[in-house]
């Protein structure tokens, strides 16, 4: 019975992730694509100004392909119109469903263990925690960069550091949660939550200071306004994704668990009606 509850929560988490992904895709298409196109235009202008020999190092991504094709060379690849529609949708929806599934499993662990919260409130807290640890904290140290900003030679190091930062942030979040629950009987819920939150912020700040800086320094001459617009769009996409996930999954989880909660309570009273 418990296993089937976990399974139905998982299915609903992935479903909520899909719905959240659709909303996030709409935001990505409307506010995210203009700065991406703008950055690719900057990249093309830069590539056009360089010697044709320089194209080799740019050929591994869409903007480079466009630049190469614009320079009259043939290269197999994905068109910009496909990248900005079906390609973008694929990326955002897979991200939403996968993280929706993971978040629903985190919810199953958290349910009834993090305080006196209903399923709906637990879902909202899970979504907020996932947004903060999986996206916001890593973003603050290694912010999203549009095409044309990065140096292709450092992709290995940047990828390692980014995933390391996500892992560290999630682990610190879990540690703060456990510490907060341990402190609650002594400090009370409010002060324990504040102490755990402060601990998370301090340790995260130390990690920011110790970890290597982003080598992906913004290329000289890249428009600052365009970079800001791109990063704001990235933040908006993730904020919408997790807000929609929290709301939708909260409704679904509440419905899934309501009969069970009623059965728990009435079972104690000996009324089998809701069973």
């Amino acid at each position: 019975m418990h296993a089937s509850t976990v399974r139905s929560l998982l299915v609903r988490g992935m479903l909520a992730g899909l719905v959240a992904g659709l909303f996030a895709f709409a935001v990505a298409y409307v506010v995210g694509e203009p700065p991406v196109s703008g950055a690719i235009a900057v990249e093309e202008a830069k590539a056009a100004g360089e010697a044709p020999a320089g194209h080799g190092s740019h050929a591994d991504h869409g903007g480079g392909t466009v630049a190469v094709e614009a320079a009259g060379e043939e290269e197999e690849g994905v068109s910009r119109s496909a990248q900005s529609t079906f390609g973008l949708a694929t990326g955002v929806l897979v991200y939403g469903v996968a993280l929706g599934g993971i978040a629903s499993l985190a919810f199953s662990f958290a349910l009834g263990r993090v305080g006196r919260f209903s399923p709906r409130a637990t879902a909202a807290l899970t979504a907020a925690a996932a947004f903060t640890t999986v996206y916001l904290v890593p973003f603050l140290k290694y912010p999203a960069t549009p095409p044309a900003v990065g140096n292709p030679d450092t992709i290995g190091k940047r990828t390692t550091l980014f995933f390391l930062m996500i892992l560290l942030s999630v682990l610190l979040g879990i540690a703060a949660l456990i510490a907060g629950r341990r402190l609650a009987p002594r400090l009370g819920n409010w002060n324990a939550t504040l102490a755990a939150g402060a601990g998370f912020v301090v340790v995260t700040a130390v990690a920011f200071a110790v970890l290597p800086d982003n080598e992906d320094a913004v290329a000289t001459g890249f428009p600052a306004g365009l970079l800001w617009e791109f990063r704001l769009a990235s933040l908006a996409i993730q904020a919408v994704l997790w807000a929609v996930f929290g709301i939708v999954f909260g409704v679904l989880a509440q419905k899934t668990l309501a009969p069970r909660a009623a059965a728990d309570q009435e079972g104690r009273l000996g009324a089998p009606a809701a069973g």
Binding site: H61, G87, P147
Partner: peptide, 28 residues
């Protein structure tokens, strides 16, 4: 097909390219 590749080529990278950038991942 960024830092590491399971499949040869760049098709996967290119297909999810815009999403990768906008979701915050290092891309290229």
């Amino acid at each position: 097909q960024g830092a590491t590749s399971v499949f040869a080529g760049t098709d996967v990278h290119e297909w999810v390219h815009d999403g990768r950038h906008l979701l915050g991942f290092p891309c290229h």
